[in-house]
Structures are given as structure tokens and as C-alpha cells.
Write a protein that binds this DNA or RNA. Structure first.
Lengths: 217, 217
DNA sequence: TTCACAATTTAGATAAGTCTAAATTTTTTA
DNA sequence: TAAAAAATTTAGACTTATCTAAATTGTGAA
């Protein structure tokens, strides 16, 4: 098995590489609140174990076996979050740190039984998809935000229009991949939409933008 | 908070000191599958934190704050075991190692909610009492084995006759404090009893012995 | 295209927890 | 009660994961 530190590195690399490309040492250091030199050390160790592809100064990506471990940890994290909210009645904003500890409980059988006990939930309390016991995510049919109804929520998962002007606009609005959004208001006359991002800040986007921003769930 | 290693030492010391007196370095080393020298190092550390009373060569006992931590870990362990058996349908002999990991999940609120979710169970799947959120064990009224009926089970928790000959006899039969027993047979003519120890070996004890051996539950 | 700066890696150190081997203390026993 | 045996502690070393400071590599701007 892998150490707690290794698992956390793999998970971070997985999350950071959602925007595909290689992940940089500094990105990982920032995500894990550690120093770049510590990251370098760990990257060598993970590369030795064949869990990442690593060449000096070039950043890293997960190998298939590294990816498998990362997905398994994410599955555990999300199932425990679901448990904490649905069974123990925690609020969705209280569960992250607890799940951060629980995701390292090693037994796969335990997590599969927990999955069954909760009747195979598809999404965690934050709307993130929960991978199944084979590591497959539900083929999330992405929908444009414009197809959502009032109070629907989802996770930003893609864009239709890939021009850099649109992407730059999204970046500025903090409407980036992985963020969860909720439809707060739909303006009838121009079909523009008010979204709440990560349960915090609200933004108002045009019908055209809503047509081109894809969400999962 | 305390490290995982510290928590495991405190738990071991707690369990080993059930027979009251001071616990020896070698006893702890045996329980934790480590070396006596490692134990000595840790004892110094725990003594510095005022969690144990320690004088060189004299063994250790828990201070009130050390005891409090140990009981809290035991509470977590037993509640998780109960969860695994009652909610996830594991067998009682499968859950120990998993609970060994889960007992280190730090949140007290989590464990209190889990306790409530399961409706405040009094005993874990092995019949051990579960301390409440204040660390109090249900005042387990001890019964002599002779008062049990067929198929009843319990955990050996004390003796009436404290002569060393009786204690030595119990030691030899492996009928020691903490072992769980089940009544397999009661011989009508002499009231002797056949017990199964820890779901394994069976022993046959006299009416007199059964009268003097106390179990909880 | 070169140079300055940013990113990354290396070198050397630290803390936790463990180990082996040697030294010390306690206990047993003759 | 003194020597032998057992238990315990100390000394010194190792591993993991981290850090700071210095060295190296890559890259963007002039």
C-alpha cells in the first residue's frame, strides 16, 4: 500500500491535471501547502513506483496505475462525504475535512459495502460525480447552463465554444472547470442567467454564454 | 492532537492496565509488536506530555488526561465496529483491523453523531461495553458464569474468589480478563459448564469455578 | 539571441518513530 | 547476599517526509 503522503500527492496531481497537460511542481506545492523542494523529492519517489511520468523540469502526469489509486481515493472521499451528509446530517460545508481523513481508510470492501448501504449514489453533496467500484465515472452527459432550470445545480465540466476570448471571459468570472454552480435566477426577457459559484459569489451571464458553458449533473 | 503512534501506545497501556498495576515496557512492546527500546523512547515522549506516569525501570500508568484519550479511542473503535457489523453487514470477526484504522478519525462530533445514528448501542459486536460521549462505561453489572443460560455470551470481567490458586487455574484455561465467552452446554447433574473462548477453543469448568468467574453483559 | 528572472532541483539539516547492539538496573536464584 | 538472568534504557543509526539555502535549468523580454 501507499503512505498517506503519497496518496495526497496522487490525488492533487489528479485534480490539477483535469485541465489535461502536465502538472508543475509549483502547482502541486501550492495545492498541498508545502515547498517545491519537498514536492520534487516526492515526485522522484512516485516515479520510482511508476505511479507518475516525470522528467526533470517538465512537470508530471499520472500513469494508469497512479490514476487508478487517485480515483479510488476520490471515490472514498465522495462516498464518505455523502455518508456524512445523508446519514449523519452534517451540512455540505462541514464534511470536507472529515472526508479528507476518511478517504485513507484502506479497505476496498468497506467502501464497496458503504456504497451499497447508501444505494449507490451518483454524486457527492457538492455535485461531484462518484466513481463506481471499477473507477468509472457515470458518463456525465454534459448540459449547457441554458438548459438548467431555476435552483438546479451542477459542476462546470466543459465548454462548447473554445475560443480564447470565451475562455478568458470564463476565467475572469471564475467560471472554471470543476467549480460548482447553481442557477439563482433566469431573466425572462433576454434569457440571461444569474449563477452562484461554489455557494458564494454570484455572477450574471448572457444567454450566449449560458449556451456555451457545460455542466455535469 | 496526538499522532497515530501516540494514540496506539495510550490504547495499549489502557488495555494492559485493566489488571490495574503498572504496565511494563516489555508488555507494551509485545502488544504493539515493536521493540522495548522503541517503547522506552515513546514513554519519555508521553511522559513529557503528561499523559502517563513514568519512572525509569518502573513501568507506567495513565494519567487522567492519558486515560481520557485512551477511552475516546476505544469508544471510536467500538462504535465503528458496531457500524461495520450492524450497518454494513460484516461478520464480527472481520471488523477489527478496519476499526483499528477508523478509530483515529479525529472528529468527536462525527463519532457522537454516529453514536446517535445507531441509537446509542451499549456493546460492540464482541460484547465489549461502549463508553458514552463523556467517557463513562455503562455500569456493567457483572454476573457469575453460573447465572448465564445456554448460548448466552459475555466478556470475562472479574473474579469473586481472588486466591492465586483460582487465578492460576483461570490463567491456564485462558479464561482471562477481556476474553469473550459463550455458554455451549450446561451439564444438569453437577451444574458444570462448557464455555467457548473467543469463538474458538472450548473449556469445561466446574460449578464452583462458574460461580466465581464474572462476566459483563 | 542573450540575459535576467522564474521555476525547479540539489544539498544538507531536522523531527518522528523505529531498529540493533551495548550498557545499566532490577530481579531471581543458588 | 552475590552472581546470573531478565528487563530496561542508552547510544547511534536508518527511513520518511519535511524544510532552507544554494545551484541549476528554462523562458520571456529587450
Amino acid at each position: 500500500m501507499n503512505t498517506l503522503a503519497e496518496e495526497n500527492y496522487l490525488k492533487s496531481i489528479y485534480h490539477l491535471s483535469m485541465g489535461d497537460e502536465n502538472v508543475s511542481t509549483n502547482q502541486i506545492a501550492a495545492a498541498l501547502n508545502t515547498k517545491a523542494s519537498s514536492v520534487t523529492d516526492m515526485l522522484k519517489k512516485l516515479a520510482d513506483k511508476a505511479l507518475i511520468n516525470y522528467t526533470r523540469y517538465q512537470g508530471v502526469s499520472l500513469t494508469p496505475s497512479g490514476q487508478k489509486i487517485a480515483v479510488s481515493i476520490i471515490r472514498k472521499h465522495r462516498l464518505w462525504e455523502y455518508f456524512l451528509v445523508e446519514k449523519l446530517n452534517f451540512r455540505w460545508d462541514q464534511v470536507h475535512d472529515m472526508a479528507e481523513e476518511m478517504e485513507h481508510i484502506s479497505s476496498e470492501e468497506l467502501i464497496d459495502r458503504l456504497d451499497k448501504f447508501m444505494d449507490y449514489p451518483q454524486h457527492d453533496p457538492h455535485g461531484e460525480p462518484i466513481p463506481d467500484c471499477n473507477g468509472n465515472f457515470k458518463s456525465s452527459e454534459l448540459k449547457p447552463v441554458s438548459a438548467l432550470e431555476l435552483n438546479n445545480s451542477g459542476v462546470i465540466s466543459g465548454v462548447r465554444d473554445q475560443t480564447s476570448s470565451f475562455l478568458q471571459y470564463l476565467e475572469k468570472q471564475e467560471l472554471t472547470i470543476g467549480k460548482s454552480i447553481k442557477v439563482m435566477e433566469i431573466i425572462a426577457f433576454d434569457h440571461s442567467v444569474v449563477l452562484q459559484i461554489e455557494n458564494k459569489k454570484e455572477v450574471h451571464i448572457s444567454r450566449e454564454a449560458a449556451n456555451n458553458l457545460l455542466v455535469a449533473l
